[in-house]
Structures are given as structure tokens and as C-alpha cells.
Design a protein around this nucleic acid. Structure first.
Lengths: 197, 197
DNA sequence: ATTGCGACTTACCACATGGTAGGTTGCCCG
DNA sequence: CGGGCAACCTACCATGTGGTAAGTCGCAAT
């Protein structure tokens, strides 16, 4: 049993939106990649915006589930667990670079697309992570703003690095880029363990 | 003496490209904002690509100059100087958020626009900064890959945070967002001073 | 005065885009 | 067998796009 047409369309759309952005993609181009007409696509998603929204929705579902998996793991949260989660996140962000790119674009666009659907997933995601981090031994007495600042710096480092991968490979060359990648996780740990200022 | 039309066009184009990306902007919209026709714009920049290229060129010139200012300052580089430079960079990135956004978009797009003009400014910029950091006392015995990884994480934290500003304000509310911003620099310092792993 | 030129304009065009309207086909269910 | 419906299709359209062609206007140099 193969994927449904709808899912295949979402796959292609996700990749194309990630590569060229909302305005850079035509629904005809998405449909064409599956040898369909754009009307077939419009049959599944009534408008281009709906298609884009569905792509985003699917991603946010996946993210939320990953977060739930983390939440469900245990009550006694240790620094190691959070660290490992973020290290894992970094690797996923690089592996699924299309998604990372798409979300980065969404972050850039959402001043325009304001309010509507931009906040949704980030909201609870950031909330949960901040709470987790704030309840760690070293962070319990720190202001929430400071916890959040540190967390966001880590997320920034991770996501920015993930989307930079192709560029870095071009700038540094393959071997040096791989060398960087292999030490990235351990440097990430160093940042996590850095004392509060 | 006011700005030339050409410069005004570049200003508007820079802002619009930053907000909506290359494909999201029409040259007519740029010209319209100055009450000109799109043909007036095409008179100054022969094509849309040329306009975009000119915007990028102007930005990269400014960045290079800022870097030169850093280079010229002194030979005995101290950790404090680099730290202050990065803190300054973070504040500039937030202040000139349009530029930061545009460069982020360029980073996302340059797999497509491959090779041509994407590397240019980043190349020397990263090179210089890496060398600076690598020659600091604490980093002199560390592999270049590790130096680079740490540096790139810091740049990621800075740039990601800068472009997130409007979203964060929406998610956290103005007062909490301001609170985060006021501790951001000091947390950035903490990351810089974190020991190597 | 005339020429030349930079800075614009209106008129126009080929083309791609998102979307509508109205089929056709094949399958499942009664 | 027949109705309904999902999943496509062809045909068409209004709009917006980047870009060309050709002209106007003011001004500075000869």
C-alpha cells in the first residue's frame, strides 16, 4: 500500500515551499512533479493557501508529538535528558533540513501573515521547553526571561546551523564541514552547561 | 541634499525583499511606494535580478566595512573585544532587522541561486572572525573546526533571535519580550565564556 | 540655438499564475 | 442494474508579472 495522492502532494509541496518559499512555488509545479494537473491538486486542497496551511499543519503535528514523547518520558527531569533532547533536535533539524527551512521561512513571513496561524505550534513548544529548563537544578532560581533567552539562543544556534548546511559545505569544503558537524554536538553541550551570568 | 532616486529605490526594495522575499515582491510595488512607475525602476536597474543584486551588494559593502573597522582596531586582540563586537552585532542585527531578515532569506535561497553570489560576503567575514577567535588565549589549542562550530552557534543565536523579534513579541507579549531582550546580551556573554568541551 | 542625455512617462505584450466550470471515468453500495 | 461520489481531466478566464518600445521633458554643454 503506497501513500495516498494527498500525502504525496504534501511531500512535494513541503519540499518545494522549503526550497523556494510560498511565492516561489506554483501549484502547477507541485502537481507536475507527480504528473498531475494543477486541478487535481486543487481538488485535494481548495486553494494554494490551504495547501500551504496543510503542510504546516502536518509539520506541527509531528513536532508536538515529538514533544509529547519527551514530556511522557519521566517526571524527574534531569539536565542530561534536556541536553540529549536538544542534541537530538539538532540532528533532526539537519536531517530534515527541508522542514527546518520551511519553519525558518514561516518565521520570516509571519509578520505579514500576522497572527493567524503563525504562533500556534511555537507557543506551546516554547512554553514546555522553557518550563522544563526552568525546573532544572541550576536554573530554578533564575528569572524566566533569562531561562527563555538562553533556551532561544540554543534553538537559534541549532536551526541556523541546520539551514546553513549547504552554504557551509560550499564555503568550507566537504571535509571541513564534516569536521564541524562532528564536533557540533559537543559544543552544543558546552553551551548548555555554561553557567548563568 | 536628499537621497538620489536610485538610493531610495534600494531602500524600499531592501525592506520589501526582506519582508516578502524575492518572489513575493513585484518591481511595480517597489516603484509605487515612491510614486514612480515600474519603468522608472527598470531604468535604474535593468532587471529585477539586478535590483536584488544591487541591494545585496550594498549590504555586503556595509558589512565588510564594519569588519574592517574591527580588524583595524588593534593587534592585541582580547577576549573582551571579540565579545563586545558580538554583543554589538546582536544589537545591530535587531536594530536593522530588515537586513538580517534579507540575509537569512538569502541563506535559505542560495541552494537554488547556487554558487554565483551567495558566498561572497560570508566567506571572508567568517574567515576573519574564526581567525580572531582562534587566536584568543582560551582557544589557541583548539581545532579550527571546534572554533568554527562555537562561532557559528553564536552567530546563529544572534541572527535567529533578531529575526524572531516580531514573533516573540506576539507570543510572549511586549513586557516579557523586553525583559528577554534586556538579558540577552549578558546570556550571550555567558555562551562566549563557556569552556571548550 | 542645437545637440545629447539622464530621468522619467504611456502604451503595449507575452506569459504564468490561481481559480472556476463542467465534464469523464471508475468504483463502491444499495 | 443504477445512483452517487471521489478523483481526476480539458477548457477557459481574469489578473498580475517582468520586460520592450518609443516617446517627453528639462537641463547642461557646445
Amino acid at each position: 500500500m503506497s501513500k495516498t495522492t494527498r500525502e504525496q502532494l504534501l511531500d512535494v509541496a513541503e519540499r518545494q515551499f522549503a526550497e523556494r518559499g510560498f511565492y516561489g512555488v506554483s501549484i502547477a509545479a507541485v502537481a507536475d512533479e507527480l504528473s498531475l494537473t494543477k486541478q487535481a491538486l486543487l481538488h485535494h486542497f481548495r486553494t494554494k493557501e490551504k495547501l500551504y496551511g496543510s503542510v504546516l499543519e502536518r509539520i506541527s503535528r509531528d513536532y508536538e508529538q515529538a514533544l509529547n514523547d519527551l514530556s511522557g518520558q519521566s517526571d524527574v527531569e534531569t539536565a542530561e535528558q534536556l541536553t540529549e533532547y536538544l542534541v537530538q533536535l539538532a540532528e533532526d533539524a539537519c536531517r530534515h533540513s527541508a522542514r527546518t527551512q520551511l519553519l525558518m521561512r514561516e518565521l520570516l513571513d509571519n509578520k505579514r501573515r500576522a497572527e493567524t496561524a503563525s504562533t500556534w505550534y511555537l507557543q506551546s513548544y516554547l512554553e514546555t521547553l522553557t518550563n522544563r529548563m526552568g525546573s532544572l537544578p541550576g536554573w530554578s532560581k533564575v528569572s524566566s526571561a533569562r531561562v527563555f533567552a538562553r533556551l532561544y539562543q540554543l534553538l537559534g544556534a541549532i536551526n541556523y546551523y541546520a539551514i546553513s548546511q549547504p552554504t557551509l559545505r560550499a564555503i568550507l569544503g566537504a571535509e571541513e564541514a564534516d569536521a564541524v558537524r562532528s564536533v557540533f554536538s559537543s559544543e552544543l553541550r558546552a553551551l548548555l552547561e555554561a553557567p548563568v551570568n
